[in-house]
Structures are given as structure tokens and as C-alpha cells.
């Protein structure tokens, strides 16, 4: 129990008639780095969005850091403050400067004094190498810079877990590396990470385990070397042959 920071048991989720998740079981330990891959529509995003309850699961049980996700909004807000998330479309707040984007939640949710929050934000912005953009607005930044700012914003809440929902899919090719580099740094610093991505190079470099999903189910879960060297499932083999 103690080192399993995320536990999902028989989690199912429907969108109308469409079943997006089918009895998914998943356990993640502290400091573990997991890459989730699979074809589009396989439920990867839904899976990680259930972990901070951006989507509600309708069946099964999800426990994050010892707190079970339920209708109780206090619990949910508490979990969300501990689970950071980076989105495909960055989702920075366009009406606020990068610095304000980073300090807003620490000030209003964690009640950190403004000066301290700014200090923390500048530290995080430095770790993703965009300190010089702090006073600009999101619309003035490149895609890669925006995504790194979004990462810094999530880190300012000092989360225990980081979720990444296809963080590089909306980026121009030359900007992917700068975002992946920032994520590699974060992994080396020991963050617990669940990353939905198609970047297999990144997966090989940082992932402890890789999950392959198809049609709402976890088809295969293996440690990184085994996953690429000898995939067991036919669908995994097909998928790997197409993307590698």
C-alpha cells in the first residue's frame, strides 16, 4: 500500500454508449515513470484524466496518495493540488503573464504569500529555461516555450505526481526536443510521471515501464527493454512495427 501512489481497480468509463475504459487495473509506485502509448481513441488520455478526475469514472475504484476519488469535492481539490498536469494544447491562461500563470494557483489554492510564490515560480521557470519570458503573455511565446511554461506552472504547485497528456503532439518538430529535455530533467529529479506520448525515443530514455493500450484496455505492461525487444501481444507488435 505504502509505496503505491496510484491504484486503479476495475475502472470503467463510458461516454454515452461508447465505453472508453474497460475494467482497467493499474498501480503506480512512487518515483515510477510510466509511458502510455497506443493508437488514437484507445483511452490513453481518458485514463490519465481519470486520475485527477477531469473525467469521472463510473465503475471501479481510484485511490491517489491514499485518498479515494469520490463525489466529495474537497477530496478532489486536494488531489488535484497534488497531481500536476500538462496538456496537449498547453492551456495557459492567455489573460495573465507567464509569471502570473505560475503564481496564481500557489497564491489562491495553497495560500502562499505572493513574494514567495514569485520566487518559487522564477525558480521553476529557470529549470525549464524561460526565465526571460516571465513578463510576457502566453500569446507572445512559441509553442515550445508555452509548453515549458505550462510545465513550470504545474510544478509550482509542487505536485507529487505529474501527468502528461501528449505534451509534444501540438508542437512543431524543432520544438519537441526542448520540451522533452525539460521532461527528462524532471524525470532525473525523481518525479513520479505518467506520460501519454508517441515519442518512443523519450520512452526508451526515461520510462521504467511502458503500457500499451487498445480499445479501452491495457493490453500489455512491461519494463521498457522487454517492451521494445520482445513484445508479447500481437497488437503491440503491429503497433510497434508501424511507429518504429
Amino acid at each position: 500500500m505504502s509505496d503505491k501512489i496510484i491504484q486503479m481497480e476495475n475502472v470503467s468509463k463510458w461516454f454515452g454508449d461508447f465505453q472508453a475504459l474497460k475494467d482497467v487495473n493499474l498501480e503506480v509506485s512512487l518515483k515510477e515513470k510510466i509511458v502510455v502509448c497506443g493508437p488514437s481513441g484507445s483511452g490513453k488520455s481518458t485514463l490519465i484524466r481519470c486520475i485527477n478526475r477531469l473525467e469521472e469514472h463510473q465503475k471501479g475504484k481510484i485511490v491517489v496518495d491514499g485518498i479515494e476519488l469520490s463525489e466529495n469535492t474537497k477530496n478532489i481539490e486536494q488531489i488535484r493540488a497534488e497531481v500536476g498536469m500538462v496538456f496537449q494544447q498547453f492551456n495557459l491562461f492567455p489573460h495573465l503573464s507567464i509569471l502570473d500563470n505560475c503564481t496564481l494557483a500557489p497564491i489562491w489554492v495553497k495560500k502562499i504569500p505572493k513574494l514567495k510564490a514569485e520566487e518559487l515560480a522564477l525558480k521553476q521557470l529557470e529549470s525549464v529555461k524561460i526565465t526571460d519570458q516571465a513578463k510576457k503573455f502566453p500569446g507572445q511565446l512559441s509553442g515550445g516555450q508555452q509548453q515549458r511554461a505550462a510545465l513550470a506552472r504545474a510544478l509550482c504547485m509542487e505536485p507529487k505526481i505529474m501527468l502528461f497528456d501528449e505534451p509534444t503532439s501540438a508542437l512543431d518538430p524543432e520544438m519537441i526536443k526542448e520540451v522533452l529535455d525539460a521532461m527528462v530533467d524532471l524525470a532525473k529529479a525523481g518525479m513520479t510521471m505518467i506520460v501519454v506520448t508517441h515519442e518512443m525515443g523519450f520512452a526508451k530514455e526515461v520510462a521504467d515501464e511502458i503500457i500499451f493500450m487498445d480499445e479501452g484496455m491495457i493490453v500489455e505492461r512491461a519494463n521498457t527493454e522487454d517492451f521494445f525487444a520482445n513484445p508479447k501481444n500481437e497488437r503491440t507488435k503491429l503497433f510497434l512495427s508501424q511507429i518504429l
Binding site: 488535484r80 498536469m85 492551456n91 506552472r153 504547485m157
Partner: peptide, 26 residues
Amino acid sequence: PKGQYDASKSLGMGYWRMHLLIILPQ
């Protein structure tokens, strides 16, 4: 965009903080 709601929720903001700080200003 729905992403603005997602992002503010993912940072732990409740209904009123989300609306007063993020949604309504925009």
C-alpha cells in the same frame, strides 16, 4: 475553450476560484 476549465481544475481550483480568476476575466 474547454482546456481553460481543465487547466484551472488540474491546478486544484474550485468552482468560484476557477470562475473568478480564470473564466470570467476572459
